[in-house]
């Protein structure tokens, strides 16, 4: 390789290397803000501020969804396998919201440790299965135990 070209190649590599390093440092410094939501264990550890607009995400604990008979009020628990977080909500849940499926809620952390949500989003997992196959897998919950959120 011609020495001039070699020099330009090194310059290009240095440019890419340095700009990548700069971005890597910035994203590392902002790693907490890069997360779209807090996991329930972050609430348990007291890392989440009270009465501020925050998001929480986790697996909806099977059997935890309780609906009020006379209104849209609903409460459920989210888990990441380490801790549980109780959520209260008073609007319509998305179609794909279900027990054993992941959900992300936006709202405020109340003093009693519950989250009052004003938005609930269903978080879809990466699995695509036809209905027959899903049935034969014995209706296995996709995030059971909250190991994966």
């Amino acid at each position: 390789m011609h020495p001039v070209r070699k020099q330009r190649l090194i310059l290009v590599l240095v440019l890419v290397g340095l700009s990548s390093a700069a971005v890597a440092l910035v994203t590392y410094a902002m790693r907490n803000n890069m997360n779209y939501f807090y996991a329930p264990s972050a609430f348990a550890a007291g890392e989440v501020p009270f009465e501020k607009r925050i998001r929480a995400g986790g697996c909806v604990v099977p059997g935890s969804v309780v609906r009020a008979g006379d209104s849209l009020d609903v409460r459920f628990a989210l888990t990441d396998g380490k801790a549980e977080l109780e959520v209260v909500f008073d609007k319509i849940l998305p179609d794909l919201f279900a027990e054993g499926e992941a959900a992300v809620v936006t709202g405020r952390l109340l003093q009693d440790g519950r989250v009052r949500a004003d938005q609930v989003l269903a978080k879809h997992d990466e699995n695509y299965t036809p209905p027959e196959v899903a049935e034969s897998m014995a209706a296995e919950a996709s995030c059971a135990g909250g190991a994966k959120i």
């Binding site: 997360n35 779209y36 978080k123 699995n127 695509y128 036809p130």
Partner: peptide, 23 residues
């Protein structure tokens, strides 16, 4: 790397993809 609303990759190069072959 981070918690996102978007799901992780379905088509994986190193392990079994989490999509049925018919799809």
């Amino acid at each position: 790397w981070w918690f996102t609303l978007h799901q992780p990759a379905t088509i994986k190069f190193t392990e079994k993809s989490s999509i049925d072959p018919s799809m």
